[in-house]
Simulated assay, not measured.
Amino acid sequence: MEAAADKAGVPYATARNWFRAAREAGDDWDKFRAASLIVAGGGIEQAMGRIIAAGLMRCEALLESIAGSGDVATGLQAMATLGDTITKLKSAGKGMMPEADQLAIENGAIKAFADLLIRQHPKTADAVLATVEAWASGQRA
């Protein structure tokens, strides 16, 4: 904590207060640091890993808060914050890895189309599945 306070250019007491406030709000910096160390790789993948790790820890803390709260208003606030956190995670993924988001959209469209073909033409199911598998393995021509 002392090194972090020094690096941020704030007194130790301020850093300690920030740490305590963050923990009370559901952010556990120690868990985040540990999760960040687990994330392998570099560049955008590492950044996304850290964002996802932080978001998942935040979601877990909010779920614990909801489960442990006997107060309806506190539970509702935690649920709203949980929804906001999930929305921010999805947005970060789209913004930082648009090709992965586009791939997810394409895969969903291909699956829906294949399902429709199989339902409307059940005798072609084997051919449709073989074609989808070829597409998934990278064949495009």
Rank of each mutant, 00 (worst) to 15 (best):
M1N: 07
M1F: 06
M1G: 13
E2K: 14
A3T: 11
A5E: 05
D6H: 13
K7W: 09
K7L: 13
P11K: 14
P11A: 14
Y12F: 14
A15W: 15
R16D: 07
N17I: 10
F19V: 05
F19E: 12
R20G: 04
A22Q: 15
A22Y: 14
R23P: 03
E24S: 15
A25P: 04
A25K: 13
W29L: 15
W29M: 13
D30W: 11
D30C: 07
K31Y: 10
K31R: 15
A34E: 15
A35Q: 10
L37D: 15
L37G: 15
L37H: 14
I38L: 13
I38G: 03
V39H: 03
G42K: 12
G43K: 02
E45L: 10
Q46D: 07
M48N: 10
M48S: 07
G49S: 04
G49T: 04
I52R: 14
I52G: 00
I52S: 07
A53V: 04
A53I: 03
A53H: 00
A53T: 03
G55S: 03
G55D: 02
L56T: 13
M57P: 00
M57Y: 14
L62P: 01
L62D: 02
L63K: 08
L63H: 06
G68F: 06
S69C: 08
G70D: 14
V72G: 06
A73G: 05
L76T: 11
L76W: 08
Q77P: 01
A78V: 02
A78C: 06
T81R: 14
G83S: 10
D84W: 05
T85P: 03
T85G: 01
I86Q: 02
T87V: 09
K88C: 00
S91L: 12
S91I: 05
A92V: 02
P98G: 02
P98C: 04
E99S: 11
A100L: 11
L103I: 00
L103C: 02
A104D: 07
N107C: 05
N107K: 10
G108R: 11
A109R: 12
I110R: 11
I110F: 06
K111D: 08
A112T: 09
A114R: 00
L116N: 06
L116V: 06
I118Y: 01
R119P: 00
R119D: 08
Q120R: 12
Q120M: 08
H121S: 08
H121P: 02
P122H: 01
P122C: 03
T124Y: 08
T124F: 07
A125Y: 02
V128L: 01
V128H: 00
T131S: 12
T131Y: 03
S137I: 06
S137Q: 11
S137K: 14
Q139V: 10
R140Q: 05
A141G: 10
